[in-house]
Write a protein that binds this DNA or RNA. Structure first.
Lengths: 198, 198
DNA sequence: CGACCATGTGAACAGCCGTTAACCTCGGGC
DNA sequence: GCCCGAGGTTAACGGCTGTTCACATGGTCG
């Protein structure tokens, strides 16, 4: 499930493997219409192939979605941890780093953000558990930083704060387009920092 | 489509009409699993009837969803406009009123909030247009207030700000439970006000 | 050269689910 | 007392769609 010779070798190459093409196209379609409303034929057509060809690369449509969501969660968790580690011991700097990271991710991968919190429910119990665990660990990264910034606050409060900030930043996909990316990044960053301390 | 003798007469009575029961149960189920993953039989079972009985009250499953979303949008728009009107001429007070209103709505109707932005895509083009128009008018309510509070800001910026604040407040459903409602309301209100001006 | 594996195709299957049809029942007005 | 409409029920249809199957093809390696 975790080891894929393909993706390790040329995942983001100029000519990504069919597998990667499919995952990307599927993410886009899932974000637009919802995973349940997208047929296997649609995904195939998006990469110039018929529907059943998908099964040469994935065990099932659900497996596709599962891999997609697990990857996102892993990228977020790894990235978040890295940001905190790289920001030194200053909690304020850590928060800024986390926010910048999340803003960048959300603006750079609107489709993934959308799918992640819309289609989590479509996963099998086992897969959903796995994704939720990764998400929780990512949230804990934030909670730890927020707790250091506001010691008297309870953990529950910090968690709620973190979720609210996610909501703020991840709202991007719903309002995309009107502002160019740098301006949007700037605005979201300022808003998130203000909200995180309120 | 808009006139319903039933709902006008005893919509929120102690014993709501079957229609209302169905709409409520459906909202709950749709929020939990997504409208596409919920069967007509599930909705029926939730109110103690069989699936096809639904068709005595709604033309189709889609019509159910449509009515649900239109109603939410209308409630938000009407409520928002009322809040602004009642807050007098002070833009800051208007913003506070809008935030309090949205926070209250989100905490009081988490299922509706979830369904509204997850299942909009499942509507027919005509219905989707109608809902989006109502939503846009509600957003404009916010944009007008935000513009008065920060005159140099462009309309696009204000719109982005409004969407971000919605994201912040509406994140509630995803993090519900850990904090009791008054505490959550307080936290979200403070965060939203801080974010709206950043 | 020949065998093989990866990849793709079109056809067919199977199950789910929205919707309809035909039939029941009960409470209330002429 | 009878009729009728509102609201339910069960059974059945029909389409959509995930998945599988049998078969083609083309590059690669022995």
């Amino acid at each position: 499930m975790t080891s894929e010779p393909d993706s390790a070798l040329h995942a983001d190459a100029d000519r990504p493997s069919r597998r990667e093409q499919i995952l990307r196209a599927a993410a886009q379609l899932f974000a637009e219409r919802g995973s349940r409303a997208v047929g296997v034929d649609d995904v195939g057509a998006a990469v110039g192939v018929t529907g059943p060809a998908i099964y040469r690369h994935f065990a099932s449509k659900d497996a596709m979605l599962a891999e997609m969501l697990v990857r996102i969660s892993e990228r977020l968790l790894a990235g978040g941890a890295a940001q905190v580690a790289a920001a030194g011991d200053d909690a304020a700097a850590q928060l800024r780093a986390l926010i910048a990271f999340q803003v960048d991710f959300a603006l750079g991968n609107p489709a993934l953000i959308t799918v992640q919190d819309r289609d989590l429910g479509a996963l099998s119990d086992a897969d959903a558990r796995r994704v939720r665990q990764l998400q929780r660990r990512y949230v804990e990264e934030w909670v730890a930083v927020l707790a250091r910034l506001d010691p008297p606050a309870t953990t529950a409060t910090c968690r709620a704060r973190a979720h609210a900030v996610f909501g703020l930043i991840n709202s991007t996909p719903h309002s995309a387009g009107r502002l160019d990316r740098p301006a949007m990044a700037d605005l979201l960053t300022r808003m998130a920092e203000a909200a995180a301390r309120a």
